[in-house]
Amino acid sequence: MTQIAVYPGSFDPITNGHLDIIERTTKIFDNVIVAVFHNPNKKPLFTMEERVEIIEEAVEEFDNVKVDAFEGLLTDYIKHQNAQVIVRGLRAVSDFETEFQMASMNKKLEPDVETIFMMTRNKYAYLSSSIIKEVANFGGCIEDLVPEHVIPKLMDKI
């Protein structure tokens, strides 16, 4: 059976921490879907279409990665994609409580789907899309924190 993993997130914008999780996930699962989620609680800088395009460029070297977008319940999306696993990245202990709650709810909604937590590499433990946007907004250097093609797109938005 082909193992399909879904790595959901807002990816506004994608960071090298996200790419680290994607790269490592491609070595474990046959197919990986990077699923851009519309989160009604967030005001994204990039549209869903822009985020999908940016991620597609960032992951073009991986043959087993597909980029998609979705709205609604993650468990419904997982079933629609015939996936078996949700991959979530953890940066620090503070991420765990929120991720644990989401994983528990997803398990209740879809008992056959597993959630796997993957620790990011230490060098990305402090990295988030929010902090990238904040640093860029104030003119700070974000090289080596996001894929190169993200920098001009982010600066255009700011």
Results as ranks from 00 to 15, higher is better:
Q3M: 03
I4H: 07
A5F: 05
V6F: 10
Y7E: 13
Y7K: 12
G9Y: 05
S10D: 07
F11M: 08
F11G: 08
D12C: 10
D12I: 10
D12K: 08
D12V: 11
D12T: 12
P13V: 09
I14N: 05
L19A: 00
D20C: 01
D20S: 12
I21S: 06
I22C: 09
T26N: 14
K27C: 01
I28G: 03
I28A: 09
I28H: 11
I28D: 11
N31V: 04
V32C: 01
V32T: 08
I33H: 10
I33W: 07
V34Y: 04
A35I: 10
A35T: 11
V36D: 05
F37N: 06
F37T: 07
H38M: 08
N41P: 00
N41V: 05
K43C: 06
K43D: 15
K43E: 14
K43Y: 03
P44E: 06
L45Q: 01
F46Y: 08
T47K: 09
E49T: 11
V52P: 13
E53A: 15
I54A: 08
I55N: 01
A58H: 01
A58M: 02
A58N: 03
E60H: 09
E60S: 10
V67H: 03
D68Y: 08
E71T: 15
G72S: 09
L74W: 04
T75L: 00
K79S: 12
N82I: 02
A83R: 07
Q84F: 00
V85H: 02
V85L: 04
V85K: 01
I86V: 15
R88H: 01
G89R: 04
R91Q: 10
A92L: 04
V93G: 02
V93H: 05
T98Q: 14
E99L: 04
E99H: 06
F100W: 13
F100A: 09
F100E: 10
M102E: 14
M105S: 09
N106R: 08
N106G: 09
K107E: 13
K107C: 10
K108C: 00
K108N: 06
E110N: 11
D112R: 02
E114L: 07
T115F: 14
T115I: 13
I116H: 11
I116R: 12
M118K: 04
M119H: 03
M119K: 02
T120N: 07
R121K: 15
K123E: 15
K123R: 15
A125I: 11
A125F: 06
L127R: 08
L127P: 08
S129H: 14
I132D: 03
K133N: 04
E134P: 04
A136D: 01
A136T: 10
A136P: 04
A136C: 04
N137C: 01
F138M: 13
G139R: 05
G139C: 03
G139Y: 03
G140H: 03
G140W: 05
G140D: 04
G140E: 02
C141K: 14
C141G: 00
I142A: 05
E143W: 00
D144G: 00
L145K: 09
P147F: 13
E148A: 15
H149K: 15
V150Q: 11
K153E: 15
L154Q: 14
L154E: 10
M155H: 06
M155P: 00
I158D: 00
I158K: 13
I158C: 07
